[in-house]
Amino acid sequence: MKNHSRFFVAAGVIMLVVISLICSGPAWAEYPDRSITVLVGFVPGGSMDLSARALAKSAEKILGQPVMIENKPGGTGTVALAALLSQKPDGYTLCATPSSVLIRVSQQQKVPFKPFTSFKTVIGFTEPQLGLVVKSDAPWKTLKDLTAYAAKNPGKLKYATTGVGSTTHAAVEEIASKDKLQLIHVPYKGSMEALTALLGGHVEFAALTSELVPAVKSGQARLLAVISEKRSVKYPDVPTMKELGYDFANDAVFAIVAPADIDPAVMKKLEGVFAAAAKNSEYLETLDRINMIPVYYDGRAFDSFLRKHWKIINKSLIASGAIKEAATKPE
């Protein structure tokens, strides 16, 4: 009996060794010699997840190795970034994250990384379509109509956003503070809930992300202004908030990041691959279908984007009373 058990223990150990050899593979092969995992800090099916999947699919054709998406939701997207840092910086694990996790969430919560220095950005590849909408049967045709009405009726207009301290909330705050309006904020969890509240007539207007596109397309809602640097290709007639005199633009760009101590040669390869992948026509078509706008930021451009918007958001978060000071030091 004793001999038998020893035999089985030995057999088990041998099996484990064999499996480990098969899985790890030779260490001297050229990068990448096995599949690459991209962590996503949000649940599957959302715009971050879908756009990352589309880009991964495009990248794996160029890389010649599978690029797998692994969802690690939690901590408003910070769990995945923390998980990235716990992995070897060998380029086989990357993370797809919205800039808002690095610059907005990190100010509201203490996070276990330094937003400016813990990561190197491979690519900033897309941004959601942000905008201000009213129900299609509402009397206001332009943003001016809406603000004029709000000025005459202080404390009457209710608006929905995707949450306190979100980009959408900050956009309306900017309007309210510039025009000295008294509005009632009803925060929702995500764009879809906010859109539902708008369509049900529980709020008069809403600041939404990409979910506004299908509602505008089907005639349920009317778009008054887009929140971005430039006008949208989809809605060339709709003005941006900047054009209307409010100094505010979108600060949510989706990016792929690697740990900061990654091998520069591997990083260079990744940058090239993803830059090429972002030009793939099939990928661009998918982005359009999920109502995301393609953009391109290389590592340096994204870094200055982060630094610029960190300051802007810091100011607006403190002004709205959400925080007293940034919860995380950026570097």
Partner: peptide, 16 residues
């Protein structure tokens, strides 16, 4: 919500 994503990916917008 995930299924909604699937509709969108296939270029179909659920709604009225």
């Amino acid at each position: 919500a995930v299924l909604f994503g699937a509709f969108m990916i296939h270029g179909v917008t659920p709604g009225p």
